[in-house]
Structure formats: C-alpha cells, structure tokens
C-alpha cells in the first residue's frame, strides 16, 4: 500500500463519522448526507497532496464538504422542508426500542427544534459542537465577522432552549 493510500484510509477512519454527522444536520437527509461524505472523500483523495498539516485535516474535510454541498445546491434546488417526526427518527434512529421513553421525548424535541432552526443559525452551531471550531474559525469558514458568529450562536441556543423552557436564559427577571 502506498503512503498516500495509508494516509487516505487513516483520514476515512478518523473523520468519516464526524463528517456524516455534520452532513446529515446540514442537509437533513441521510441519503444525501452519505453522498456528500463520499463525494467529499473522493475530492480529498484527488487533492490529498495539498493537505500540509494533518492537524487541520478535519477542518480541511469540512471545508470540502461545505463546498460540495454548495455545488449540490447550484445543480439542483431542493425543496427545504421542516422535518416531521418520521424524518427525525430516520436521521437519529430514535425509534430504537432501547431508547427510554423520557429521553426519546426530550431528544425528539431537540431534534425538531434543531430542524426548525434556519441554516444561518444551525450551521455555526454544527461547526462549534461537531467540528470543534472556535468563533474565529467559524467566522473564517462562513466568511462572516466573529461578532456575527457570536450573535448567531447565542440566538441559536436561545431558540433551542425556548422550545424546552419557558424561561429566557439571559433576560431572566432574577438576573442582575
């Protein structure tokens, strides 16, 4: 096996699951997500020599995946739909019989809340939670200012929490 092939297989083993998670929440379809991940790795294989720093491999792959997703949008304009409960279960496998009922309800609520977030708020959150990006890195990736990233992250969490709790997390009357 060539060193290039070894490097590629290591990348696939290390990051394909993370990329899939990111993709599935980005495009909200398990089938499209897998296609995106496969296409991302095919492009990574072609451009493997341009990866200089193995430490930045995940960011590099996410960048490729985001570009590939944009290309997908330029090819076809898929109808953006909010996920119904069945779609959410298809994504997360929450119809698994081993999931406890309480957790099921709670996670399903979170799923639906996430799905209802617009991409503008969802993507920075995905980059932070799944990608491990800092605000500055997210700003670079999305080509917006760090201040805008902070605003989007704040609002994204606020919207999600509002779905579960009546209490506004920041403007709580008890807060001084």
């Amino acid at each position: 096996m060539t060193p290039r092939q070894i490097q590629f297989e290591a990348l696939v083993n290390a990051y394909s699951k993370d990329l899939y998670r990111y993709a599935v929440w980005l495009c909200r379809s398990p089938e499209v997500a897998e296609d995106l991940v496969q296409e991302t790795f095919m492009r990574a294989w072609k451009a493997l020599d341009s990866l200089q720093d193995p430490g930045s491999a995940k960011q590099w792959l996410i960048t490729i995946l985001r570009r590939e997703n944009l290309r997908r949008f330029s090819r076809v304009q898929p109808e953006v739909q909010s996920l119904d409960e069945m779609d959410v279960e298809r994504i997360t496998g929450l119809d698994d019989e081993f999931v406890q009922h309480d957790d099921h309800s709670q996670n399903l609520g979170m799923e639906q809340a996430l799905a209802s977030l617009s991409l503008e708020y969802r993507e920075p959150l995905l980059l932070q939670v799944l990608g491990g990006y800092s605000c500055e890195e997210i700003a670079q990736q999305l080509d917006i200012k760090p201040g805008a990233v902070m605003t989007r992250l704040f609002r994204a969490r606020q919207k999600l929490r509002k779905c579960f709790e009546d209490e506004d997390i920041v403007t709580d009357s008890k807060v001084k």
Partner: peptide, 24 residues
Amino acid sequence: EHNLGQTLAVEAPEGLESRILLRQ
C-alpha cells in the same frame, strides 16, 4: 449542551468507511 451533543451525535450508517474506500 449534553443533550444537544447527544442529539447531534447521530449514528453513521454501517459500512460507511468501507463504501468510501471501495469507491476510492
């Protein structure tokens, strides 16, 4: 955050790596 992390951490389909390596 724990709940959010759990929700986002969906299972990747079985054999994903193998399919990628096969295609490559």
